[in-house]
Design a protein around this nucleic acid. Sequence first.
DNA 1: CTGAAAGCGCTTACAG
DNA 2: CTGAAAGCGCTTACAG
Lengths: 339, 339
Amino acid sequence: MQPSRSRPRIRDVAEAAGVSETTVSHVLNNKGRVDAATRARVAEVAERLGYRPNSNARGLRSGRADTIALLMPIVDLDATHHILAVDFYLSLTMNVVEAAFERDQALLQLPPLRRLDDLRRFGIDGGIVVDPLPADPRVAMFDRLGLPAVTIGRDIAHAGAPWWVAADSAAGTLTVLDHLAAAGARRVAMLSVDIGWSWFADAERAYAEWTARHGRHPMLVLARPDKLDSSAAEAAGRLLDLEPDAVYVPPQWLATGLLRAARERGLSVPGDLLVSVGVDSHQARTSEPALTAVDLDPARTAREAVDLLISRIEGRPPQAPRVIPVTLLPRRSTAVVTT
Amino acid sequence: MQPSRSRPRIRDVAEAAGVSETTVSHVLNNKGRVDAATRARVAEVAERLGYRPNSNARGLRSGRADTIALLMPIVDLDATHHILAVDFYLSLTMNVVEAAFERDQALLQLPPLRRLDDLRRFGIDGGIVVDPLPADPRVAMFDRLGLPAVTIGRDIAHAGAPWWVAADSAAGTLTVLDHLAAAGARRVAMLSVDIGWSWFADAERAYAEWTARHGRHPMLVLARPDKLDSSAAEAAGRLLDLEPDAVYVPPQWLATGLLRAARERGLSVPGDLLVSVGVDSHQARTSEPALTAVDLDPARTAREAVDLLISRIEGRPPQAPRVIPVTLLPRRSTAVVTT
DNA sequence: CTGAAAGCGCTTACAG
DNA sequence: CTGAAAGCGCTTACAG
């Protein structure tokens, strides 16, 4: 038995099956008219020989690479993924990898792009950009190269563009706020971050609408997205000065800071203060008390993003953007304390 | 100006520079003898035209894809990355992406491989396998296809193979144990997990040696790697029954469980119990109290792994495995309480 | 329904 | 120092 040095080529399959390379290609790609018996024989031979098309040759000829790129948020390598919750990004990544694989696409992960050439270097058909900033420069690079891109999260500066997938931040926010009100909260505040991602922008808007509709005074504090730990402490302090009895905190890192600040002031959660975070994570589940959280369904988000990108690559017309339903996971941090 | 429909080919560069395609190729790949002036002119033209080689064509011809694969640990998509600490894996991933990019390699992320064909499908030159299990089946697939692979973490069933990079778990363990002893601990225990990764195996061995050398009674409790939260509670309970005054806990998830169990028993950390975790994370930094941790240097681990894989791809002889130095980050959970 | 031929964009002996 | 030519493994009009 030969060492795997030379994998079988399409010619080997053609010879073994007694047909031309053209016919083998047709069978393998389900194209053209091929007699059913021939088709079966060729497929069987290809299988037996363990034939796999050479992706370089196929890509060179067809112009398609069957490869898509994934670009994570523009952030410091070590700190800023925490803006939402690190679990979410790892899960999103693994699920995008899985979804791409299932659609026969290879998944290339790209570093933060500095120049257009960084993108030109790779043989890709398109890309998924996570958490676009307003008028995101990465998306602009794809546009400039004529490469299809979709985003996870909406670019809030490009109202019209339909090529995005996003968790339903507004609905999640309203669900949380109603949940807090149902638990008896009167002074419901929001602690969030000042960064132009649609997830946060939509939550803020939903909060403003909700307070207006219920005739409540809005109490919104925004943290700076840098120097995470100190800005969290500072913002949490400002928020507690407003004396809320419940807080919705979309990002996990600020929820951690809020719990600490509350503890330092002698406030008990949920006794004196209800707290809900906007994304689920191991940290939310195991914090003391366990935090009520929003399940953003990274698996479904990933699948929809890959599907949308493939649609765009194949030139299908834009559809409606895809809004992913979210689910509230009630935990002890918002449980009504029985007297 | 043309839309980017047709990127320049090597022929366009050759014509614009008045030389042959061969010469352009030589210049671009630093091969053959080319007159310095010619070289400069060709390089300038290529730059001006924004020429980028077509990776499919190059790969088809040269047999090299300039693409490497990354395989994360075999785990449930959502739960088991927490075995070490989710921050570590996300940081490792982003750093591998960055390191590969700097070495002009594209980085393909692969899902858990089920069959050999899953691997054959992709045009890759080699792969990095993270946290190999004993006699890891993923590594075996690479071997079977004659594809070079390196691992992050050592396969404890393959003592001889030098193609791995790993943080120095033994040294980290000894540093932690000495640190605990210096803080006055008499009954130093270890809480770890029963999974065949070298990181944990080496820590256990180092702990055994350290206790023997210092004439101390070893107190080792291993948690099961599944059903993370309940197994953590169970193992932490068993450990506290041994009444240690200090614990080294390599994985973050068990440290979280231990802190909770200690709290439930009315034990204060660090007052009654010193705790150190084996990997740094946002969770370790922000837990109450902040946890002394080991910095595993994922950035350097990533760089060395990419470098080692490229060595192997290029057929260079095996060198010594690469052991990454680790650093202790002392925090409040092991601070001596001043009386 | 099937096949011969061209060609995707490179790199690499080879000749001069 | 430079270039003409072959060929990597496919897919795709095109002809029959």
